[in-house]
Nucleic acid binder design. Structure first.
Length: 556
RNA sequence: GUCCCGGUAGCUCAGCUGGAUAGAGCAACAGACUUCUAAUCUGUAGGUCGCAGGUUCGAAUCCUGCUCGGGACGCCA
C-alpha cells in the first residue's frame, strides 16, 4: 500500500471511530467515508464531506456534526497538524509536514517499481487488440488501438495483473479470397494482361508491392497456371507477407504480442462444430430459411444472428464465438477486447454468445476506441481503402517518431474522437506535449550530473523536512498520487490518466525549476534534500513514461 | 426508427463513483535567459459546462426529454 493510501486509511479509521464515539450513527448506518484531496490548498491535505452525509442520520446540522467529530479525533495517531471545519460542513485535515517527506525514501528505494501495486492480485487477464485483417498495412485507426491496448496492458501489469497480449488474425474469411483476387489483378497488370480488380478489392500500395514481389521471384509463371492454383498461391503469399509486415510495424511501434491467434486454427478439428452442438443442446439455435440461427435475443441482443449461412458456410460470428470459448478455456479471469467504435454493434451478440456458453459476463469486457480523423491544413482528409489514400502507421512513425505518436494516441480518452493534426505532428516542434514531459526528465538528469560534478553527491543523507516551499510541497503531493493514478487507470481502463499525470508532474517540475535553485553551495543541507526530491521526480516521470511506452531521454 | 460515443474558454481537450472559486495546452496580450538546459517559467484576458425539466443541503458530474455532431445497425468481415 502506498504512503498516501495508508494515511488515508488511518484517517478514515479515525473518523469512523470519532463518529461512533460521538454517538452520531450506529456502526451499521455508517456511510462509506470519502476522503478527497482538495484542489485548493487552503482546504488542507485531505477533506471529507461525511458531516453532510450524516445530516439525515444524525438529524443535526452538518457543521454541528463536524464539530462533534473533530472533538473526538485523536490527532496524534495520524500525524495531523490541524483540523478545520469549513463551508457547509467539510472537515479539512492538515497533515504534519513530515508526512509528505516520507515519500522520498520510499520512491528512491522502490525505483523502477514505484507506482506499482498488487490490486490485481495476480489475476490472469487477456487483452486482445489491433487484430486488423491481414489485407493491408496498419493505418491511423489501428495505431490508436495499438497504443491504447499496449498501454492498458502496461497499466494492468503495473497493478499486479498477469497480462497476455493477443492478436487475432482473421486469415480465414472471404476477405482473404478478396486479397488473393486483388493481388492477382495487380499481378496481371504488371504483365499487361487483362485484369479485374474486384469491386470490394484492396487498392493499397502494399498489394501492388506484393504483386511485384511475386513477379520478381517467379516472372510470368503464375499467368500460365490455372486460376485456382494461382489464387491459392497468391493467398498464402499475400498473407505471409502482410502478417510479417504488420508484426514488424507493431514491433517498431514498441508493441509485442505474446500470442498471434490464427482464425484458421479454429477451423481445424471439430472446435466449431462442437460449439455449435453445445448451443444446439441448450436450444439456443434454430433453423430458418435454410440457415442456422443463434437466439441471441434471449440474452439481450436486438435480433437473432445467423451462424450457418444458407450455402453451408459460417458467418464471421461462428468462429468468433469459438474463439471466445477458447479464450475462456485458457483460464483467463478477465477477457478484454479492444475494438474500434465502428464494431460496437457487434458487442451484444458476442456477449450473448458468452452467456449462452455459460461464462459470466463480468469476465468479459469490450473497450471501444473512437475514430481518428485526419486533419491536414485544418481540413479533414477523407481516407478510403478504395483509393488507397490512407495514412499508415509506418508513415506516421517515420514522420513523427514513435514517442510522439504513442503519446498522442493515449493523451485523450478512448471515448473521444481524435483529430490527428498531421501538420502539427510533422512539425516535431515544441507544440508537442511529449517533448515537454521528456524535457522535464532531461533537465533533472542534467542537474544531477552537475550535482555530482560539484561534489554534492558525497553521501545519501538528506532531511526531507527542509522541503517546505509551495513548489516543493506541490511536487511531493503529486508524487504521492502516482500509485493511485495507476490503480484508477487499471480499474476504469482510462489509460489517458497516466499521460495526464505525467504531464502535470512535468509542469510542476518546470515551475519549481524556474522558481528555485537546486544546487546551492551556501546551503548544503537544503541542496541535498532537493537533490533527493529531484531523484524522486525523475524516477516517477520515467516510470510514467515507461507505462505509456515513451522514452525518457537523459538529455535533449 | 433502434443502439453506442461525444457536445465544457476562439481551437484541441481534462474534470463526470455529486462537493467549496470549473482546469490544461494551443492561439492573444504583457513580462523573465551573465543562472542547474528559455523545448522553460510568471502574469493578464477568455465560460449561459448544448437546451429544458427533475433528484439533492449541494449538479459540468446522477435521472428524463429534446437538440446538434460522429459512428453502427448484412446469411460482409
Amino acid at each position: 500500500m502506498s504512503i498516501l493510501a495508508k494515511t488515508e486509511q488511518l484517517l478514515k479509521d479515525q473518523i469512523a471511530e470519532a463518529i461512533l464515539a460521538a454517538n452520531l450513527a450506529e456502526q451499521e448506518q455508517l456511510p462509506e467515508i470519502m476522503l478527497e484531496k482538495p484542489k485548493d490548498k487552503n482546504h488542507g491535505d485531505f477533506a471529507t464531506n461525511i458531516a453532510m452525509q450524516l445530516a439525515r442520520i444524525a438529524k443535526k446540522a452538518p457543521r454541528q456534526i463536524a464539530e462533534d467529530i473533530v472533538e473526538q479525533i485523536d490527532r496524534t495517531k495520524a500525524s495531523i497538524e490541524k483540523i478545520e471545519i469549513a463551508g457547509p460542513g467539510f472537515i479539512n485535515f492538515f497533515m504534519k509536514s513530515d508526512f509528505l517527506g516520507a515519500l522520498i525514501p520510499v520512491i528512491l528505494e522502490a525505483e523502477d517499481a514505484y507506482g506499482q501495486s498488487q490490486i490485481g492480485n495476480g489475476q490472469k487477464v487477456q487483452v486482445e487488440f489491433v487484430s486488423a485483417n491481414p489485407t493491408g498495412s496498419l493505418h491511423l485507426g489501428h495505431a490508436r488501438g495499438a497504443a491504447y491496448g499496449d498501454v492498458l496492458c502496461n497499466v494492468l501489469e503495473a497493478t499486479g495483473h498477469q497480462v497476455e497480449r493477443e492478436y487475432y488474425i482473421n486469415d480465414a474469411g472471404s476477405q482473404i479470397d478478396n486479397l488473393a483476387l486483388s493481388i492477382e489483378a495487380r499481378y496481371l497488370e504488371i504483365l499487361d494482361l487483362p485484369a479485374n480488380m474486384p469491386e470490394d478489392g484492396y487498392f493499397g500500395q502494399d498489394i501492388i508491392n506484393i504483386a511485384s514481389s511475386i513477379f520478381k521471384e517467379d516472372g510470368d509463371k503464375w499467368a500460365q497456371e490455372e486460376q485456382t492454383k494461382r489464387l491459392a498461391y497468391f493467398k498464402e503469399y499475400g498473407l505471409t507477407y502482410l502478417i510479417k509486415q504488420i508484426e514488424q510495424d507493431l514491433r517498431d511501434f514498441r508493441v509485442e504480442f505474446d500470442n498471434w491467434f490464427s482464425e484458421r486454427s479454429l477451423h481445424e478439428g471439430d472446435q466449431i462444430p462442437n460449439v455449435l452442438s453445445l448451443l444446439e443442446e441448450d436450444n439456443y439455435t434454430y433453423e430458418k430459411d435454410g440457415a442456422t440461427w443463434f437466439r441471441s435475443t434471449e440474452f439481450g441482443d436486438d435480433k437473432d444472428r445467423v451462424l450457418i449461412k444458407k450455402d453451408g458456410s459460417y458467418t464471421y460470428l461462428t468462429p468468433d464465438i469459438t474463439y471466445h470459448q477458447n479464450k475462456f478455456q485458457r483460464g483467463f479471469d478477465k477477457v478484454i477486447n479492444v475494438w474500434g467504435a465502428d464494431h460496437h454493434g457487434y458487442i451484444p451478440r458476442m456477449r450473448a454468445a458468452i452467456l449462452a456458453l455459460g461464462y459470466p459476463d463480468e469476465k468479459f469486457t469490450v473497450q471501444t476506441i473512437q475514430m481518428v480523423s485526419l486533419l491536414e491544413q485544418g481540413e479533414a482528409v477523407k481516407m478510403s481503402k478504395r483509393s488507397g489514400n490512407v495514412v499508415t502507421l509506418r508513415e506516421l512513425i517515420e514522420d513523427v517518431g514513435v514517442d510522439a505518436v504513442r503519446y498522442y494516441f493515449v493523451m485523450r480518452s478512448n471515448d473521444s474522437h481524435l483529430d490527428f493534426d498531421i501538420d502539427l505532428a510533422r512539425k516535431q516542434s515544441t507544440d508537442n506535449p511529449v517533448f515537454y514531459v521528456q524535457y522535464a526528465h532531461a533537465r533533472i538528469c542534467t542537474m544531477l550530473k552537475q550535482a555530482e560534478k560539484q561534489g554534492f553527491m558525497t553521501d545519501d543523507q538528506y532531511d526531507a523536512k527542509l522541503l517546505v516551499t509551495e513548489k516543493e510541497v506541490d511536487l511531493l503531493t503529486k508524487l504521492g498520487e502516482f500509485p493511485q493514478v495507476l490503480e484508477d487507470a487499471a480499474k476504469k481502463y482510462t489509460v489517458h490518466q497516466v499521460t495526464q499525470y505525467v504531464f502535470d508532474l512535468a509542469a510542476l517540475l518546470h515551475s519549481f525549476y524556474n522558481a528555485e535553485k537546486v544546487l546551492d553551495a551556501n546551503n548544503i543541507e537544503l541542496t541535498k534534500a532537493r537533490i533527493a526530491l529531484m531523484k524522486a521526480v525523475k524516477i516517477t516521470i520515467a516510470n510514467g513514461l515507461k507505462i505509456i511506452g515513451v522514452s525518457a531521454p537523459e538529455k535533449m
